[in-house]
Design a protein around this nucleic acid. Structure first.
Length: 503
DNA sequence: CAGTAG
DNA sequence: GGGCCTTACTG
DNA sequence: GCCC
């Protein structure tokens, strides 16, 4: 047994080292004689540990935070590759060859010369695996074949045909129960703000059912056996039908805590947890915050607090287009020989008259070979005074084969506006376009449907993802789609233009 | 890891 | 008793 | 809060 006598703690779930990978590595270590020390115990007995496996991309600060320690343990910190290579070769590799340097932080701004190509995408590694058979589907009824799927995927075709009409993303009619769902939506939002996730989810699923119910509910008996609508929610529906509102909602509106959390969580970068913390510290209004800025707010939160009054304003469609056009124009200037394809997504693409932010998606050939392009584009936009602030700039496409900028833009005479720019390789473009066009509810619906078929739909494609005894097995992308029309054909649905994805 | 965002 | 769209980044 |  190669790991005999080794006491190992595996730190995963951050810095690009997924929990799933961590679990698989832990399992393999145990299988080969090693002892896995879970984090809580490891914290108290760092001197007992042989070594700690940490993400390749982690640094001292992150490790201290995750371990909740003030100084690093004395044992070596090694890369997950040590365990992977040792297991694969059935021989113990020298941990010293895999040490993560303790003091040196990873370079945030890599220069072109020192840029190292990122490790393989996890999906790449699975591409050679045979497709996992999908759930048991009837062997008959295979008269027509889906033009997107080849013969090997007839099972997938059958599976995608089944039951999809139960889901919101296939919905054809408008919401007939707006009078009920609008009230329940307030309740749902309040519960999420109060971090009562359970109730939040419960109301969310009940709302989905009510929205897709084919008849208008005017009497409590009609909800008799609706899925997800249980006793309590049924009672609330009756109250809404009688009084037009809910006592619970009225009572919540009076709560000073919820009031403050609602206000604070509108600040970009501040969620329910931070908002709650602010309330506990005695803050009640945005003005309280401005007068005495809390120490623990990070730079991004401070910027967005300062610009709050501008960022909160909806952006007229016209202005979204102007800023988008400018960004795309500069992108084309920087890459004159590339055929750049661009879409402004989000509510703009869904046809709204005003938008909360500006969400631009770009692609061209060889995206992954132009790793520094987004940074150059952002630098250029800063120079041209289009972009005023950078909130997030992901420069490494190691796991996710794409690039993201999140920041703030402004026209010379305009307000500060939230701007996102994403760059995806062509082969993911249609999936990404669909993802960023939303709506969020549309995405949820179609993803839940995929999930129930043993599939995983993301901004990068459709994958088999079978969960069995705790491990998720991911296959390579099932099909290549280069247009949204292809994705809808794949799901055997008539094409839905973006304006109809407002669930 | 928790929190936040898409 | 766990899951409730998924994935990535920050601190 | 609801469902498996």
């Amino acid at each position: 047994m190669i790991f005999d006598g080794y006491k190992i703690c595996v730190l995963s779930g951050f810095a690009g080292f997924t929990k799933m990978s961590g679990e698989i590595i832990s399992k393999n270590i145990s299988k080969n004689g090693g002892t896995i020390i879970p984090l809580p115990q490891a914290r108290n007995q760092t001197s007992n540990l042989t070594l700690i496996i940490v993400p390749e991309q982690s640094d001292e600060k992150m490790i201290l935070k995750v371990m909740n320690l003030t100084s690093l343990p004395s044992c070596p910190l090694v890369s997950p590759n040590w365990a992977i290579n040792s297991t694969n070769s059935k021989t113990l590799h020298d941990p010293n060859d895999y040490q993560i340097k303790k003091t040196e932080l990873p370079i945030k701004r890599q220069s072109p010369q020192t840029y190292q190509s990122p490790p393989q995408s996890p999906f790449e590694a699975y591409k050679t695996l045979p497709l996992v058979p999908l759930s048991n589907s009837p062997e008959m009824n295979r008269t027509q074949t889906n033009p997107i799927l080849n013969q090997n995927n007839t099972r997938l075709h059958d599976d995608l045909l089944q039951n999809k009409d139960k889901y919101m993303f296939t919905k054809e009619q408008p919401n007939l129960n707006e009078h009920i769902t609008s009230v329940l939506e307030i309740l749902m939002e309040n519960y999420f703000l109060l971090r009562d996730r359970g109730r939040g989810f419960a109301y969310r699923s009940a709302i989905i059912v009510l929205k897709s119910h084919p008849e208008k509910i005017i009497c409590g008996d009609q909800v008799g056996n609706l899925q997800k609508v249980g006793k309590k929610i049924k009672k609330k529906i009756q109250e809404i039908l009688e009084t037009g509102t809910l006592k619970r909602v009225k009572a919540m509106d009076e709560q000073s805590r919820l009031k403050a959390i609602k206000e604070f969580s509108k600040i970009w970068g501040v969620g329910s947890a931070t908002a709650d913390k602010l309330f506990t510290l005695g803050y009640r209004t945005l003005d309280d915050l401005r007068k005495n800025i809390p120490q623990f707010l990070n730079d991004n939160q401070r910027i967005c607090l300062e610009l709050f009054d501008e960022i909160k304003e909806r952006i007229p469609r016209e202005e979204v287009k102007e800023i988008s056009d400018q960004v795309v124009e500069y992108a084309k200037l920087l890459l004159p020989n590339k055929d750049i394809e661009a879409n402004t997504c989000g509510s703009y693409r869904r046809g709204k008259e005003t938008c909360g932010d500006i969400d631009i998606l770009l692609t061209f050939d060889d995206v992954l070979e132009n790793k520094l392009f987004l940074r150059e584009l952002v630098d250029y936009l800063i120079e041209k005074k289009v972009v005023t602030h950078v909130l997030i700039l992901s420069e490494n496409c190691k796991k996710h084969e794409s690039f993201t900028f999140e920041g703030i833009a402004k026209k010379p005479d305009g307000l500060h506006r939230r701007l996102d720019i994403k760059i995806y390789p062509r082969k993911y473009y249609a999936w990404a376009l669909m993802h960023f066009t939303g709506s969020a509810n549309f995405n949820r619906s179609i993803r839940l449907f995929a999930k129930n078929k043993g599939l995983k739909l993301t901004d990068e494609g459709l994958f088999p993802a079978i969960r069995s005894h705790g491990e998720t097995i991911c296959g390579g992308n099932l099909v290549e789609c280069y247009t949204e029309e292809d994705i809808f054909r794949l799901f055997d649905m008539p094409y839905k233009p973006p304006e109809q994805r407002d669930l």
